[in-house]
Design a protein around this nucleic acid. Structure first.
Length: 203
DNA sequence: AGCACGATTAACT
DNA sequence: GTTAATCGTGCTC
């Protein structure tokens, strides 16, 4: 199965966020495939619009910082950041170079390498392996070392490829999760997307 | 140099 | 339903 090319990611974040639903996120660990179907995403900074929930727009007057610079770069790279003192979040960089633009992957349905996922999520039931952004990062061993990883390089260890066929009417839309003090209108913008009824959606 | 807080999770009552 | 955990980042002094 082929890795999606850079052109797949070089579109506005909302478009990519929807396109990612049903696709397969693959992680190569010791030469073995560990993968899940993407069932929930969130868009941050769609196209050229501002988004005060987005790290790229919230800090440093919309200019890159040490943390967010990857998001300002070209599409098709991983933006992995650390939060709450213990969790890693995995995003794909979208849009055009020069503007922060990314999609947070919030949940997967386990699909391949489940015995490795089980090792990475010890003591948890299958239902709780990958139903949240920090949980799926732990399940696929995604951390700081993958910040800036190329998702379309032939020799990469993390990529997206074909998965399920998703009917448009199966895509649900709603406001993003966990935005805290983010002001309106961004707090309520319906930029969270998920597959209707999928048991691995985080909320 | 110091401080407040976070695109969350797990373990409580 | 409530709250502790835990530290990098960005901002202020």
């Amino acid at each position: 199965m082929a890795r999606f090319p850079q052109a797949f990611y070089a579109r506005p974040a909302r478009e990519v966020a929807v396109a990612l639903l049903g696709k397969r996120l693959v992680r190569l660990l010791d030469g073995r495939r560990v993968a899940g179907i993407i069932v929930e995403t969130e868009a941050y900074c769609d196209a050229d619009e501002p988004d005060l929930a987005c790290h790229g727009d919230r800090a440093n007057q919309g200019r890159p910082t040490a943390r967010s610079e990857i998001m300002f770069g070209p599409a098709g790279f991983a933006y992995v950041y650390f939060t709450y003192g213990m969790h890693w979040m995995f995003n794909v960089v979208t849009g055009r170079e020069g503007k922060a633009n990314a999609v947070l992957v919030r949940a997967l349905e386990p699909f391949e390498g489940e015995e490795i996922i089980a090792q990475n999520r010890p003591g948890r039931r299958r239902r709780e392996w990958t139903n949240g952004p920090a949980r799926l990062a732990q399940a696929l061993a995604i951390d700081k070392s993958l910040n800036g990883a190329n998702l379309f390089a032939p020799d990469g260890v993390l990529w997206v490829e074909e998965g399920w066929t998703v009917r448009p009417e199966a895509v649900c839309v709603g406001p993003r999760v966990g935005l805290g003090q983010t002001p309106e209108p961004w707090f309520s913008m319906p930029w969270r997307f998920w597959l209707s009824g999928n048991p691995f959606v985080s909320i």
